[in-house]
Design a binder for these strands. Structure first.
Lengths: 221, 221
DNA sequence: TCACTAATGTACGAACTAGTACGTTAGCTA
DNA sequence: TAGCTAACGTACTAGTTCGTACATTAGTGA
C-alpha cells in the first residue's frame, strides 16, 4: 500500500488534500481489513489519522464509498504487481510453475487484501458491482496464463484441456485458502499453513500439482 | 441444519425449551451467515423467531456465545456428514477421486457454513479457540484420506509424498474458493464458478488434478 | 493585500443496538 | 390442587455510531 509518511511540518493546520486523502485510505484499508465492513468504525479510522472524521465525509462521502475506494485501490495495487509478472521467457512448464510460486508468495505478502476479498464476498460483491472501476476488470495474471497455456498446448507439452480462467481459479484457490483460512485451519488441525518453514514445501506442492495436471497422460477421449 | 417446523398448537404461550433453543439457533445461523458477526443483529434474530430477544440471553448468554453455539453446531453437522463418507471399499485412485467429488458437492450444498468459516477467519478463529468443543477437533475426512493415502503409497500407486492434512487442504481449497469467492470472482471475470452446468466440469477437473499429482512420475529424489 | 474558496476542525444529534430489570404464566409435582 | 420454578414477555437504558450543522483558516489569485 502507498504509505504516507512525511516529516510533519512545524505544526498547526497544514493543508494537503492529496496527503490527507491518501492517509485516510491507508488507515481505512487497515481498519476494514481488520474488522470487516460492519465491524470497522469510522471514528476509529478518523482517530488513527492526522485529520478528523469530517474529512472522511468531505473526501469520500460516507462509509460505503470509503470502502469502495479502499477496494478499488487494493485491486489496483494487485493489478500493478501482476503486470510486472515476467515469466513468459521461460518454457511453458517452468513458466506455469514460476507463476504459481509467485502467486503463492504474493498472496502471503498481502494478507489485508485477502481479508478484504473475503469481506467483500460476505457482502456478495455488492461494492465491486457498484464500482465503475472494478466491474469485469479481469486480471493480467489470467492473460499471462492464457498465453503460456496456448503455447504449451500447441507444442503438445500440456495435455490437459483447461482454460486460463479455470486454471487461475485453481492456482488462486490454494494460495487464497492458505492465507484466508489459516486461522480456522490452524485451530482445527493444529497446522499453520503459513509457517515460514513450510512455505517452500507448499510452493513445491502447488507447482507439482499444477504441472502434474497439465502434463498428465490422458485416457483417449 | 436441523430445521424446526411444528404445527403451532392453538395459540397463546407454549413452552418448549428444546424447540425454542433450536429455533433461535436456526435463525441465528442464517443471520450470522448473511451479515457476519458484526453485521448480524440480535433484534433481527429475535424478530424472526417465535420468541423474544430475552430468550436469546436466557439460553445463550449473549451475542458472542450465540455465535459460538452456531459455529459448534455447524461444525457438528459437517462432521456428521463426513462420518458417513463411504469410499474405502474403492481402490485408492477411485477413492480419492470420489472423496474429492463428495467434498465439492458438500461445500456447494452448505454455503452458509462456508460463509461462517470465512467470517470466523476474519475474527482470526477467536471463537473456535474459545470453544471447548472445537479446539483441534480435526475432521473425519482427514482420517479417511490418511488411510487411503497409506494404502495407495504402500501399493506404489501413489508416488507423491504428501501427508493427509496437506492433501485435505489442497482439496478443500478449491471447493471452498469456488463457493466462498464466487461473488468477487464472478464480478471480476464474468464466470460463475457455481453455475450448475459447470459443476460436472469442476468435479472432473479437481479429481484429475489430485490424481495426476498423486500418481505423477517423480524425478528421482 | 484583500477577498475568496478549498480544506479543515468542533460539537452535536438521531437512530440504532446489545443487554437487562422486572413482571408473568404454563405446566409439573407433591 | 396448590405451589413452585423453568420458561417466557415487555419495556426500558446506557452506550455507541454514522452522519452533519456550523464555524474557521490556509493558501491562492486578482
Amino acid at each position: 500500500m502507498t504509505s504516507v509518511e512525511e516529516p510533519a511540518r512545524p505544526n498547526g493546520r497544514i493543508r494537503d488534500a492529496v496527503r490527507t486523502r491518501a492517509e485516510i485510505l491507508d488507515v481505512a484499508t487497515q481498519e476494514f481489513a481488520r474488522a470487516g465492513y460492519d465491524g470497522a468504525r469510522v471514528d476509529e479510522i478518523a482517530a488513527r489519522t492526522r485529520t478528523t472524521k469530517r474529512m472522511i465525509y468531505y473526501y469520500f462521502g460516507g462509509k460505503e464509498q470509503l470502502f469502495m475506494a479502499v477496494l478499488e485501490r487494493s485491486y489496483g495495487v494487485i493489478r500493478e504487481a501482476e503486470q510486472g509478472l515476467d515469466v513468459e521467457h521461460l518454457d511453458p512448464v517452468a513458466a506455469i510453475r514460476r507463476l504459481a510460486e509467485l502467486t503463492l508468495d504474493h498472496h502471503e505478502q498481502h494478507p489485508d487484501f485477502i481479508r478484504l476479498v473475503s469481506i467483500e464476498n460476505i457482502h456478495e460483491a455488492e461494492h465491486i458491482a457498484a464500482s465503475e472501476k472494478l466491474g469485469k476488470i479481469g486480471s493480467p495474471a489470467v492473460d499471462v496464463i492464457r498465453r503460456i497455456l496456448a503455447s504449451g498446448q500447441e507444442s503438445g507439452l500440456f495435455t490437459a484441456d483447461v482454460d486460463a480462467v479455470d486454471l487461475h481459479a485453481m492456482i488462486s484457490s490454494f494460495c487464497f485458502f492458505r492465507v484466508a483460512n489459516r486461522h480456522t485451519f490452524g485451530a482445527l488441525f493444529g497446522r499453520d499453513l503459513t509457517a515460514p518453514d513450510r512455505r517452500e514445501h507448499y510452493r513445491t506442492m502447488l507447482g507439482d500439482m499444477v504441472i502434474a495436471y497439465l502434463t498428465a497422460e490422458r485416457a483417449t477421449d
